[in-house]
Design a binder for these strands. Structure first.
Length: 274
DNA sequence: AGCCTCCCCTGGAGGC
DNA sequence: TGCCTCCAGGGGAGGC
């Protein structure tokens, strides 16, 4: 599934093919994504692409007239192909460019979206209230600590809240909590300032490391199979329930939190905070 | 405001 | 082999 690292690698991969190119044609084969693909997306035709940016897991294709907002959801992927490449199953949207290439949006489960906005993208309702990017200096231990003071929600769900920090999906929440030695069910307001400092460090490390691995997975844009790519080999807890903890040898335990699979080591991640 | 549950969707896995 | 059921999960919507 595309997590923030894969979205970032996708952005880096498509940028050289898109930046400065003019949109020649947009083909929408199935507009039934998370939200209907708006007909106004066609306003993009004949405009040059002036920017390819990312905010959280949203990709932004900018023009002087408006911005296309793409989200890959659970199963989406983007490929750069030549004009005329026959579409396959779940190839929902093509954006054809003046250089003979096209950007193809494929999404099996259709949890993703392709939207169009004429306001500055940051002011769009989906982006306006997002928390800081995890890999910037705006995201630091004290940010989490201060935001957590009145929050009784479990720390795992707290760090997966996009208003707190963006881009921490289920896999990376599991991994970073393990590395920081924090029990996922510990209430957010019982996690200490020191623990948040460690957790912040681990979130940055795991995401940065996954970007490196995501580069391997997506470098030729042959698409994702819905599994976590090569980074799966480095996962310490996610998908390893009932297997021995790499640190202490005890058995990893799986529970469900908010409908999401949660795996942790009861010994290395004691339910202990302030 | 904070918290919780529900829901969108398809393909793969497992059971019979 | 085929059919059924269950499950995964980002994240917004809506109800308390």
């Amino acid at each position: 599934m595309p997590e923030l690292p894969e979205v970032e690698v996708s952005r880096q991969g498509i940028t050289p093919f898109m930046l400065g190119e003019t949109v020649m044609r947009i083909v929408v084969r199935n507009p039934s994504l998370r939200w209907p693909v708006p007909s106004e997306l066609q306003e993009m035709v004949s405009l040059p692409i002036t920017g390819v940016r990312r905010r959280a897991k949203y990709l932004l294709l900018e023009t002087d007239w408006g911005t296309a907002i793409l989200h890959l959801g659970m199963s989406g992927n983007l490929r750069i192909l030549d004009h005329g490449t026959p579409p396959g199953k779940h190839d929902h949207v093509d954006i054809e460019l003046s250089n003979g290439k096209l950007l193809r949006f494929n999404d099996t489960r259709r949890f993703g979206c392709v939207l169009w906005t004429r306001e500055p993208a940051e002011q769009h309702a989906l982006l306006a209230k997002l928390g800081p990017e995890p890999l910037t200096d705006d995201f630091h231990g004290d940010h989490l600590f201060e935001r957590s003071l009145k929050r009784k929600i479990a720390v795992k769900q707290f760090i997966m809240d996009n208003h707190v920090v963006v881009g921490v999906g289920n896999i990376y929440a599991n991994e970073s909590l393990f590395s920081a030695g924090i029990h996922p069910e510990l209430p957010a307001n019982q996690v200490t300032q020191q623990q948040y400092a460690a957790l912040t460090t681990e979130i940055k490390l795991v995401l940065a490391r996954a970007i490196t691995q995501g580069g391997t997975t997506l470098k030729d844009f042959t698409g994702s199979d819905g599994k976590p790519g090569y980074f799966v080999q480095e996962l310490q807890v996610y998908g390893r329930a009932e297997q021995p903890c790499g640190a202490c040898g005890g058995l990893l335990q799986e529970i469900r939190m908010g409908g999401r699979s949660t795996v942790f080591c009861p010994r290395c991640q004691p339910r202990k905070g302030a």
